[in-house]
Design a protein around this nucleic acid. Structure first.
Lengths: 246, 246
DNA sequence: CGCCGCTTTGATGGAGATCAACCTTCGTGG
DNA sequence: CCACGAAGGTTGATCTCCATCAAAGCGGCG
């Protein structure tokens, strides 16, 4: 159930078999299935614990008063939404499903149990949280400085590598369910311009995007195009000195 | 020394006198003074602990390969930069001073001591961290959806309220040291357009900005203009049920 | 005084928004 | 099994916000 999370965390530190089982158990306690295009958590809701995305894609988003919408991040299998958010009275943004989604609710007690039971798990979860913040900063940079092609390219690089790090990519391809309108809400571009940008990228033979599947024809070219530097994802085992040895 | 931090944290939970002293002590252990326009921490550096901004303004930023720069956040007195960042091998962005700055280095041990000594402090620091993430999300929205006037207005609202919450505003005015070029790097606008946007805002009688001082003539009008909703700053004492009673 | 960092102004150009159709795909029900 | 409708994708024409380029003010300080 929580294989993706475990795989991802091991990019930081190797977990013991017992620790993996503990995460496995936490992630299978309260599992729900949610239809496509539903809200999982809404701005203003009281959060109880964290959400683990087990399968499918979700996004965090927020509407402005006048109806404009910005997607501030995508959540893919293995992602934890808002560790610690139960400290707050209410959600300041919404989380909605893009596809059918399987989530596990991680209660406050479950999380505290995991973290106090193993400092290695605690550190791994904090690492994941730091990476999530770094991703958010990178989105700020993306929207502030990059033009349409660079922006889309960067987004594709991010989501391919994130899925790969969780064992969710196949060769040079991965799931990619967002519609062009959703890509527009994420990149701050109009749907029309997203469409034209994708055509440009296709004709430059950077990517293929169809049937909710992304194929990256030339990852180096795509990364160059995006000026993508993967170091912000911190996938190079920063916690190796804390590895479990079983 | 750390009055601003203590003031700010009390927007979440009331701290006991002993807890305030503990923070005070932590924030006065290793204090340094840094000149204006210097790097405090550079991308690639190994982080040891967190930084507390005691006085002056700093910013987090990152360059793209081709020299474009994006400022991803401003740090004002009372702000902690990257709690827990010592888990990472290297910084994925830089922190630079805008003005002369006084910082306190909070070592990993100091932080762990503070947090294990008082769960109330631990929660308050996590709250601060959650708010920092929310601010980063809001920047994403700002750059993705708002036009120039709305964007600048939103930035002014944010920084006024943040300083106010740390006891650093005076009436309807506060420090505001960034140059127009720096505002451009933060908002993704050119310097020229920042200038024209400010003129527009001045002539609409929203703000006065001179001598590194921001005066907000009509906060309601400014917030309306920006479609600013302060709830993401979580200043309404979400931890009140955990208040100390002395 | 003269220089340097910052702000301001004017003129021109371009990336991307907006508007308005039209097309394609696919699920649903008659 | 085809009709139809809705959701998503594509195209063309026009407009606008903001970038860019270039130069000129302005104030503070050595």
């Amino acid at each position: 159930m929580s294989q993706a999370l475990i795989r991802k965390l091991q990019n930081f530190v190797k977990l013991s078999a017992a620790e993996q089982r503990a995460i496995e158990r936490a992630g299978s306690e309260r599992v729900r299935r949610i239809g496509a295009h539903e809200d999982i958590l809404r701005e203003g809701d009281k959060p109880n614990g964290a959400l683990l995305i087990v399968d499918g894609w979700a996004c965090r988003y927020k509407y402005l008063e006048d109806g404009r919408r910005q997607i501030v991040g995508f959540s893919v299998p293995g992602d934890i939404c808002d560790l610690n958010v139960f400290l707050l009275k209410e959600m300041d943004h919404s989380i909605g499903s893009l596809t059918e989604v399987v989530v596990a609710d991680l209660s406050r007690e479950t999380l505290e149990g995991l973290m106090s039971g193993s400092t290695r798990i605690a550190h791994a979860l904090w690492w994941d949280n730091l990476v999530a913040n770094a991703i958010q900063r990178e989105w700020t940079i993306n929207l502030g400085q990059r033009d349409a092609v660079e922006r889309m390219s960067h987004l594709f690089c991010e989501l391919f590598l994130r899925q790969k790090s969780a064992g969710r990519a196949q060769g040079n391809s991965c799931d990619f369910p967002p519609t062009q309108a959703e890509l527009g809400d994420a990149t701050g571009l109009s749907t029309v311009h997203v469409n034209r940008t994708l055509q440009q990228m296709r004709s430059a033979d950077l990517i293929t995007l169809q049937n909710k599947r992304l194929v990256i024809n030339d990852i180096d070219a795509l990364m160059r195009q995006a000026m993508f530097n993967p170091s912000y994802l911190h996938l190079d085992r920063d916690g190796a000195h804390l590895d479990a040895n079983d």
